[in-house]
Computed example of a mutant assay.
Amino acid sequence: MNPQRTAHGLGLEPVAADWPALHETDIEQLLHDYPQLGPLQSLHWHSPRPFSAAGLITTGEATVFVKRHHQHVRQAAWLEEEHRLIAHLHRHGAPVAAVLPNRHGATATTQGVWTYEVHHVAEGLDLYRDALSWSPFQNTRHALAAGQALARLHLAAEAYDAPQRQTQVLLANARLIEQSNPLEGISSPYLADKEWRTQLGELLLPWHAELHPLLREQPPLWTHNDWHASNLLWNADGSVSSVLDFGLADRTFALFDLATAIERNAVPWLDLDTGGIARADLDSVDALLAGYHQVRPLSTRDLLTLSALLPLVHVDFALSEVAYYQDVVGSTASADIAYYAYLLGHLRWFAGAEGQRLLGHIRRKSV
């Protein structure tokens, strides 16, 4: 029987993981499809990330990172959409860890109800290994380097022209907010007994009216969509050495990724769980934008679009989380948190004093 593990939850405290931990027996069976790696020697670290089970293993030939998904979350074809992006970025010099093919030449391996992927270990210091989502940068030097690295990743992705992903759940993108009437694009059994049209009409549509005309100007680009410090590895001088975890990647546009980076790193959202006000770190915002601008310059129009986008950049992923927790995991309690605290709570925050402080700060930078 696989051991129970804890994982990062939707709040400050660890929770029982949605999926059982990797087990040596599972890995030994998987390695039959990766003869180049040799036999398993040890399974010596389990990731605390919540949506899959993952860890580091050492075999007779290498140490590699193994990640296992339930097929309701990632089927092989869905996972390989992500892997083709990683391969493109690797060919274009981006610091990403290559995915290993199995004995059939595929980068995703299906065993029973599970889908596996095996990556080379990325280079660098894992300074944020245990950091929760929305934890801040340790310093503005890291924020500057993260902005530079994100811009370089976007340059490497410019020639990649694959269509949007077909993955069904747990994607971060702008498909809903790009629609002229986003409420018409929402369909979820979870919402059947909720006043969601009224709630989102009040909280989402005013932001959308300002943003939607600006989205037509955005050239499409494949983006990372989870640009948090814990998805980066670091050099001793504070620069970024590797980029991890393209699980939420999709075809969006560059400012969507940059807005996500601000949302993920500069607002301590979990403070709201303890009655705090979640005061944005404007120094980190400035450093992140400065780093990005050094590599891929931002125009006045870009900054205005960024400020209009920030209140809505979480919307598609929040609804995707609702679907994951309700339809895949079967946890209405977690779906409630994703809907009320994440989707609606963040919309309300941007309408309040602290959200207006952040948006006004970005708008003033465009003057």
Rank of each mutant, 00 (worst) to 15 (best):
P35H: 07
P3R: 14
Y292T: 04
E158P: 05
A54E: 04
T59I: 01
S239P: 05
E81W: 10
P189D: 07
P163D: 06
I57T: 03
A108I: 02
Y190I: 00
S331H: 10
W134F: 15
A53N: 09
L248C: 08
A77H: 14
G238C: 09
N235G: 09
D18H: 15
L205T: 13
H83S: 06
N225W: 08
R301I: 03
L10M: 12
L358C: 06
I362W: 05
Q148I: 03
Q41A: 13
E354D: 13
A290G: 03
I57N: 01
P297E: 12
L176H: 03
S331Q: 08
A76W: 07
R5E: 01
V328W: 13
E217M: 11
L205A: 12
Q4T: 13
L85F: 12
A54K: 07
S180M: 11
E123D: 14
E81A: 08
A259D: 06
A323M: 01
E195G: 15
V66T: 03
P182L: 08
Y324S: 00
L125D: 15
K194S: 03
F137W: 05
V329Q: 11
F317M: 08
V267N: 08
L183Y: 09
Y339W: 14
P163H: 05
V243Y: 07
L214Y: 13
Y325L: 02
I86V: 14
G352W: 05
R279G: 06
H70P: 09
H293W: 04
A261H: 05
D130N: 14
Y339P: 07
I177C: 00
D26I: 01
H154R: 12
D336C: 06
L214T: 12
A308T: 00
R129P: 08
H293A: 04
Q164G: 15
H104S: 15
A318K: 00
L40D: 10
E24K: 09
Q164T: 15
Q71E: 02
L312N: 05
V267H: 06
M1G: 14
E210Q: 13
Y160K: 11
D18M: 07
P136F: 02
R74Y: 09
G345Y: 06
A229F: 03
R348S: 13
D250W: 00
V285T: 12
Q111N: 08
D18R: 13
L100C: 09
A287G: 09
A333E: 15
L272T: 08
G185D: 11
T300Y: 02
I277E: 15
L344N: 01
T252Y: 05
F137R: 04
T58P: 01
A254I: 01
L89Y: 07
G93I: 02
A261T: 02
V322I: 14
R141D: 12
A278T: 04
S180H: 12
L289F: 08
Q4F: 13
P95Q: 11
E117P: 01
A323V: 00
Q168G: 00
A17K: 05
H104Q: 14
Q356V: 03
T274S: 13
W234N: 03
T63N: 07
D226L: 07
Q71S: 00
W134V: 09
L30V: 02
L22C: 10
V118R: 08
H346F: 13
V322Q: 07
Q148E: 15
E178M: 09
A333K: 15
A162I: 11
A149H: 10
D316C: 04
S284F: 11
D281E: 14
Q326T: 03
L22W: 09
L176R: 07
